[in-house]
């Protein structure tokens, strides 16, 4: 999925410096859209980003450095808060737990792990060096 790994760089500091020059991009309606610098994402956490058409996405950088993006709206409450959930992994697949009522969503597919009938949109991601 990712086109570049920053984990091979020598030191954490160098990695963070490099991360400032790497743009996080999402595949939206057939085109790649840049949303932020890699360095703006805390490993293990998410951030909300606004798409040009007003949609909200939750972008995550996991512990291993991989990027994920799903819709920011929590389908169980309607609130736009999924970016503020905690990350976890189950059977090697990363998920986010909604900060409101704790339902978990697979970050790769948007599938809710606690209710098979619920899915949120998932977006492809990549990193692009300036």
């Amino acid at each position: 999925m990712t086109t570049l790994s920053v984990e091979t760089l020598e030191t954490a500091e160098a990695a963070e410096a490099a991360a400032q020059s790497v743009t996080v991009e999402l595949r939206v309606d057939g085109a790649w859209v840049g949303v932020c610098k890699l360095g703006q994402l805390t490993p293990g956490r998410g951030a909300a980003a606004l798409l040009p058409d007003g949609r909200q996405v939750a972008v995550f950088r996991d512990r291993g450095g991989a990027l994920h993006a799903i819709a920011n709206q929590d389908p169980f409450t309607g609130a736009y808060v999924l970016s503020r959930g905690l990350l976890g992994s189950a059977a090697g697949r990363p998920y986010v737990a909604s900060p409101l009522l704790k339902q978990r969503f697979d970050l790769a597919t948007g599938q809710c792990l606690d209710d098979e009938n619920v899915t949120v949109a998932a977006y492809r991601t990549r990193m692009r060096r300036e």
Partner: peptide
Amino acid sequence: DLEILAGPTLPVRTLEGT
């Protein structure tokens, strides 16, 4: 204002963005 949160959700898109 919970009505605004209960409003129509945006279309779900596949990984390919369609």
